[in-house]
């Protein structure tokens, strides 16, 4: 184990695989693009199936001529494929059109609210990793009742509806104890409850993954050897054991971060967090297609990018999987 930055089981034959890896990388990138295409198509189709925005934009008693003029003004009188083609062409230039609701270009609107969502997701992600990882390791290395208790705890985390937990947290901390504020205006303390709520599911999943990975690793020969060499137990577990479960954790962490972005919708609604989740629910209510497409597309873009990044990171940690299958067959929830 001379390589300190790449915690792999064996020294990696990096030079030999490098052309393969660049080809694999190209394949991954084009795959990511294909997925993005699918996301945009789906967004576009579903958004258009939901109804007529002109009706919502105009008051109930607007005359027909006004309605037709507005439909034309918004480009809604063109055939669907043309509308989609235009959407895609403009999207490639970072132009997602103009929000009906706000009368402003979509991209800046979304980018304005994006930091709030990223802040929330990042905070939740940190909580999930910082708590979930040690919890998983602990529960794997301490057998018996402690392990079962931790396992049960993580199961509870998986079982509670996130928004319900959010409500309960508000009820206990903000209303009963007056410890934390519920609103979303400024300050770190405002971040605590929503981030905690959002992190719970990921936390539970990460700790379970680490636990099952560790349980298996700790039975391996090289761990026994390490123990036989008289290394202290904490070192065996936290260094030799942990670095070997990192690959699935990184892959999953990528998925989790993407998941956090999308499940932030509910949490943002509960906590009045002014992020893209709330923006998109608002856009949905008003049938604001461009805004809806913009938010969903940007969320999808984020998800795909994060997973691409996780893939590349994994390939660096463990080159053996660089050329492997993309979709995992794990049946863990």
């Amino acid at each position: 184990m001379s390589d300190t930055t790449l915690p792999s089981l064996k020294p990696s034959p990096r030079r030999a695989t490098s052309p393969l890896r660049s080809r694999a990388l190209r394949a991954r990138v084009s795959h990511a693009l294909a997925v993005l295409f699918g996301v945009s198509l789906l967004t576009f189709l579903v958004a258009h199936a939901t109804g007529d925005p002109v009706t919502l934009l105009l008051p109930a008693n607007a005359p027909e001529a006004t309605r037709i003029a507005l439909a034309h003004h918004l480009g809604l009188d063109q055939p669907l494929p043309v509308q989609y083609g235009l959407f895609l062409l403009h999207a490639l230039q970072g132009d997602f059109g103009r929000s009906f609701l706000y009368g402003q270009p979509v991209a800046p609107l979304v980018l304005q609210t994006l930091p709030a969502t990223l802040e929330l997701a990042a905070a939740a992600f940190c909580i999930a990793l910082l708590v979930g990882l040690p919890l998983g390791v602990l529960s794997a290395s301490r057998g018996g009742v402690a392990s079962a208790a931790l396992q049960l705890l993580s199961m509870l985390g998986l079982a509670m509806p996130a928004f319900w937990l959010g409500l309960m947290l508000v009820l206990v901390f903000a209303v009963q104890l007056h410890l934390l504020p519920v609103d979303s205006s400024g300050g770190v303390s405002h971040l605590v409850l929503p981030a905690l709520t959002l992190s719970l599911l990921s936390l539970a999943r990460i700790s379970r993954l680490v636990r099952s990975g560790m349980q298996e690793i700790l039975d391996r020969d090289f761990i026994r050897t390490a123990r036989a060499r008289g290394l202290p137990e904490w070192r065996v577990v936290w260094v030799h054991g942990l670095r070997n479960v990192l690959v699935p954790v990184v892959t999953m962490a990528g998925m989790e971060l993407g998941d956090l972005l999308s499940s932030a919708v509910v949490v943002e609604v509960v906590f009045a967090w002014p992020g893209i989740g709330r923006l998109s629910v608002e856009a949905l209510g008003a049938r604001d297609f461009p805004l809806l497409q913009g938010t969903v597309f940007i969320a999808g873009l984020g998800f795909v990018l994060i997973n691409l990044l996780a893939d590349i990171l994994c390939a660096r940690i463990d080159p053996r999987i660089a050329s492997g299958a993309t979709s995992s067959g794990s049946i863990a929830p």
Binding site: L57, L58, P59, N61, A62, P63, T66, A69, L70, H73, G103
Partner: peptide, 13 residues
Amino acid sequence: QAPWNGECQLWQQ
């Protein structure tokens, strides 16, 4: 004028 006439109902109403 569009798009303002959709919201302001002064002339129509």
